[in-house]
């Protein structure tokens, strides 16, 4: 039986998830995820055509804050956990000029 999720799909999902996986990991995840997804498809036994999706858990609406600025962390605290910074900015290896969104 062919797997529900093959290595190619795992690679694609890993790319979307920004996970660098070894070939062995890809194989392992492919079979584990296939098993899980096959189980999940149990949901298809249910006819849900007329069922509303429950997009939010509570029925509450309209929760707001007022537009009054509060104190920010400031640069020092903002950078305190940064793996690399120059005292002003977070530093990462040069970003290629691709469109972000």
């Amino acid at each position: 039986m062919s797997k529900k999720i093959d290595a190619q799909q795992v690679k694609k999902v890993a790319m979307l998830s920004r996970l660098d996986l070894s070939d062995a990991e890809i194989e392992r995840f492919a079979s584990q995820l296939s098993e899980i997804v096959t189980y999940v498809e149990k949901m298809n036994e249910l006819d849900t055509e007329k069922v509303e999706p429950m997009a939010h858990c509570l029925g509450i609406t309209n929760r707001f804050g007022e537009d009054r600025p509060a104190e920010s962390l400031g640069t020092e605290k903002a950078l305190a956990n940064a793996p690399d910074h120059d005292g002003q900015f977070f530093i990462v290896p040069r970003i290629l000029e691709e469109n972000s969104a």
């Binding site: 707001f64 509060a70 920010s72």
Partner: peptide, 29 residues
């Protein structure tokens, strides 16, 4: 509720929320 300010000191108008720190939650303005 970080202030919106043009040309402020880099990374000074930030908080756990807009820095995406663990546990932070959005509150709509």
């Amino acid at each position: 509720r970080c202030a919106v300010e043009f040309a402020a000191e880099p990374n000074s108008r930030v908080c756990p929320g807009c820095l995406g720190m663990p546990g932070s939650m959005p509150v709509m303005n």
